[in-house]
């Protein structure tokens, strides 16, 4: 192979013919030496050069003048949410800055007021909030439970689980978690856009 590559007596391979015809950068010395001596290869290079000139000189016919307009009428460019948020921020920064300042001022004032009330410590305040949340969630759970019980959904579920036994319940749970995992996987795959392949598999 090396012998072929350095031998100035062999004819040019198609890649080398193209390199000389199109004036591409890498032109090996041995091939150039051969080209100087071989009329056949010289003819091939010149023929390809002429063909390239003829083809590269062909016109690029234009579509109708309304082409761009017709395309744009059917195009809907959509920016991702963070880009849209950034555009909005740049375009309406004055009202946005005013709103943020007002929010910061209100929060600071409230914090100041809270620290100025000795009987309303931050600890007792947060305790109160947690208490409220706990009460509310308990009420919600109880409401759902009574609803399920009264609608006999829960009852039928319990009856069914008694019938299928512990092994059955474990099997059912494993099947359910398998379905959940594959659904999550499918969702993840859907969220990643696949590279566009318009061509039918042929």
């Amino acid at each position: 192979m090396r012998d072929r590559a350095t031998n100035p007596r062999r004819h040019l391979i198609p890649d080398e013919v193209e390199t000389f015809a199109l004036g591409l950068p890498a032109r090996p010395r041995a091939a150039r030496a051969h080209l100087g001596e071989c009329a056949e290869c010289h003819r091939e290079v010149e023929s390809l050069r002429a063909l390239d000139e003829a083809l590269s000189g062909l016109a690029h016919p234009a579509p109708s003048p309304r082409f761009a307009e017709q395309v744009m009428a059917r195009v809907s460019l959509r920016a991702p949410w963070y880009a849209r948020a950034w555009t909005v921020t740049r375009e309406r920064w004055v009202p946005l800055a005013a709103a943020s300042l007002a929010l910061a001022a209100t929060t600071s004032l409230m914090a100041l007021w809270l620290t100025s009330q000795p009987e309303l410590s931050l600890m007792s305040l947060s305790g109160l909030v947690v208490q409220q949340i706990r009460d509310f969630s308990l009420q919600v759970v109880m409401a759902i439970g009574s609803l399920l019980w009264s609608s006999s959904v829960l009852r039928s579920v319990i009856e069914a689980s008694e019938r299928i036994g512990t092994e059955g319940a474990i099997l059912l749970l494993s099947a359910l978690s398998l379905v959940t995992i594959s659904a999550a996987g499918a969702m993840m795959r859907l969220m990643q856009p696949a590279p566009l392949r318009l061509r039918n598999a042929a």
Binding site: P61, P63, F67, A68, V71
Partner: peptide
């Protein structure tokens, strides 16, 4: 990608002839 239509029009201007 940031929904700038003028950029799309410029790309159209560049490539409408070669593609067509």
């Amino acid at each position: 990608k940031r929904a700038d239509e003028r950029a799309a029009v410029e790309l159209l201007r560049r490539f409408e002839r070669p593609v067509f």
